[in-house]
Structure formats: C-alpha cells, structure tokens
Amino acid sequence: MSGDKKPNSSNDAQTTHFGYETVPVAEKAQRVGQVFHSVASKYDVMNDLMSLGTHRLVKRFTVELSGVRAGQRVLDLAGGTGDFTIRFSSLVGPTGEVVLADINASMLRVGRDRLIDKGISQNVMYTQLNAEQLPFAPDTFDCICIAYGLRNVTDKDAALRSMFSVLKPGGRALVLEFSKPRNDLVSKVYDGYSALWPIVGKLVTGDADSYRYLVESIRMHPDQETLKSMMENAGFSDCRFHDVMGGVCAIHVGFKPLTAD
C-alpha cells in the first residue's frame, strides 16, 4: 500500500497537483474549495451544458450498478447538489438512510436546499466532511458512492482507505470519475470539446479559471487500470470498472470482503 499523500502527489512529498499547477499539499483543499464555492450555484446548469445532458444517463447507470435496496445505509460522498442522494433516497425508502456529504459548504447548501424543495427529508442526513478522514464508525454503510469527487481529493489513497473502513463487509464502493478515452479519435474530439469548457464557464458563471482547473484535473486523474489498482491497494476486492462513452468516464466498483484476509 502506498504511503500517505504520496501516490497522487508530485515527486516532492510536500506538494501535489492542482490541475497542471504544483501546489503545497495543505493548499490544495483550500484551492479546490474556492473553485466549488465559485461554481456551486450554477453547478447543475454547467453539468448539463458540458456533458450535453449525458451526465444524467451516466448517473442513472451508476445507481443501477449500486444494487442499493430498501433499508440500506448509503453514503453519497462529494455528493454536492444531491443528484445521487435523490435517487438513493427513493431506493432505500423510509427504513433506510442516505448521508449526503461534501467538503464544500456551498455545494452542500445547494444540495440540501434542493432536496428540501423536492420534499425529500425523512431519510437524508447532511454532513460536511473530508473524504480522507470519514467521521463514521467502521462498518457503517452498505454502499458508498463518490461521483466526480475523487479527482479533487488531495490524497486519493487515504480517501479510498477511509471509504473501505466505513463500508460494511459485503458492501460496495462506486467511484464515478472522468477517465482516459480508449480510442484516439474519441480522445482528440473530447480534448477539443473540453477546451471549450472554460469559455462556456466564463459565459455562464463568469469564472473561466474554475473550469480550466476542471479540464486540467481530468487530464491529471489516474486512468482506469491505475484507479482499479489503487482500490485494490485500499483493500477492495472484486474490483472492476465500466467504461462510459469510450472511456471519457469510468465507473469503478469494489467490494469490502466479508471476512478479513
């Protein structure tokens, strides 16, 4: 297993990536926080614009892969505006529970307001937390889902280990994240298209820098195989991934073994 704050950081142990920039480890969470404070109110609109609406289908498929049933406890990590919590809340029903968690207060506020406006309150809790140190007892959740969030975590290995710890034996973790397209043509088209995001971001939110970070952070994120091995290193078993749109995104699934090795 990799040491703390090293595998995803640059060669210098005290620095890490923030898009293409190299920043001190202690500064990354704050810089990412600024990005999401800035985009929180227009986050859903921008998602629809950048993905041309396809993010809804990808999220739908991710929920199908979760296998969540009535009465289960689910952690929607980096849940932001609550897209997954809405779906999970209906699946777990009144006997289950969903915890919508995000490190960013602005995103969490947008998510909480949105859920309350939809009348979803009976089985949802809200927590502001750092994914690297989840403040829950071990073996708490049947399913943990982190969608488009792991990329922004400073120490991804620590986050995966923390997720593994709070997952119940037999429970599963899902990581939905941008990944590496398999096909060169898809890759080139995608690169060209994503280069437009800062311009669209500037027009819609008045903030091009946040979307420049988004594009850069996607490029710096580990590919499918690397993330799978990171999950295995964290202790997950039966890890697999589903490429979405030719690898533009990938959904990784891993299970906590029923018995400790």
Partner: peptide, 11 residues
C-alpha cells in the same frame, strides 16, 4: 452494453 440499455430505458 448495459450502459446503452440503461440509456434506452431512461426515456
């Protein structure tokens, strides 16, 4: 493909 089927199911 399951993702494709899921996308067809949505509408």
């Amino acid at each position: 493909n399951e993702m494709f089927t899921s996308s067809l199911c949505a509408p």
